[in-house]
Design a protein around this nucleic acid. Structure first.
Lengths: 145, 145
DNA sequence: TATACTTGTAATCAAATCAATTACACGTTA
DNA sequence: TAACGTGTAATTGATTTGATTACAAGTATA
């Protein structure tokens, strides 16, 4: 199973707001680039706003970045859109048999291992900024002759 | 969202088979330790068998490890029980707008980043063996006075 | 051979999550 | 006041999960 595409869409939204920084990034405008429904975008904008990544105001069209691109990592977006809870990337079965040596210890043994794996993944996300993403897109655009 | 507990249960199964290596680890025996239905265990045993981690035979009670504990990593189990497909830990939205510079490049830009994060997580899983798990459980058992 | 037990596997079910969609209250601007 | 935007709740179909039931087929033992 996969982590919700809310994460990828969140990155898309922030990147697009930057690309369109001269213009107005309304939920409808963004939705047409993402190719989804404006209400989906508004819901995600609410999460990004709550996390302090963008500024949006009721009734006023358009969202703006609240921070510099270089100050927003993929990990920030990942946390903002709430796709994976802390220590819960991996789920562990409930109620193993406490009368069995394996059953009564397996959870406590496995959890730190799972946590370490999750943290390693999140560390990579934290090492990439949206500036890196924009730079890469710019590069790809220039290569298309 | 979380990765299926099939992974945790797979680890439980293999660990239990080792703990019970003098006895017979039937699907019912394992199910009572995991606290689930024997059919669930049999399905997982089928996956573990297919991956070459255990030996089971139709009609013959009990499963045995096909390799030494120190030769089975958590990554092996993770692959065996098929909880996350290659390059698909993170899902990316489909059909972004090709007429937008962001829409037409976002997928190709994001995918390698997601892949790197997934690989970092999997690398940690590959660095832990079932022997480590058993050792930890043994240690925890001894501490209970 | 007959019986009991086991594995292998398919079908079904309720619950959870996702993403899309519709609808509408409320704020802002012209 | 009319038009347009955000904020947010409710509904829907699709998909996945884990539990359960059922049964065919393999094996061992009396």
């Amino acid at each position: 199973m996969s982590i919700s595409s809310r994460f990828a869409v969140g990155i898309h939204i922030l990147t697009l707001i930057d690309f369109n920084r001269e213009g107005t990034s309304s939920s409808e405008f963004i939705a047409s680039s993402v190719n989804t429904n404006p209400a989906v975008i508004r819901k995600l904008m609410g999460m990004l706003k709550k996390a302090g990544l963008i500024e949006v105001h009721p009734g006023i069209a358009g969202a703006k970045l609240a921070k510099d691109l270089s100050e927003i990592t993929l990990f920030d977006v990942y946390k903002a859109v709430n796709v994976v809870q802390e220590k819960e990337l991996f789920s562990v079965h409930n109620n193993p048999n406490p009368q069995c040596p394996v059953g009564r210890n397996i959870q406590n043994t496995i959890e730190p291992l799972f946590e370490a794996a999750q943290l390693a993944m999140e560390k990579v996300l934290g090492s990439v900024t949206l500036e890196d993403v924009v730079t890469d897109i710019d590069k790809k655009e220039k290569m298309e002759c």
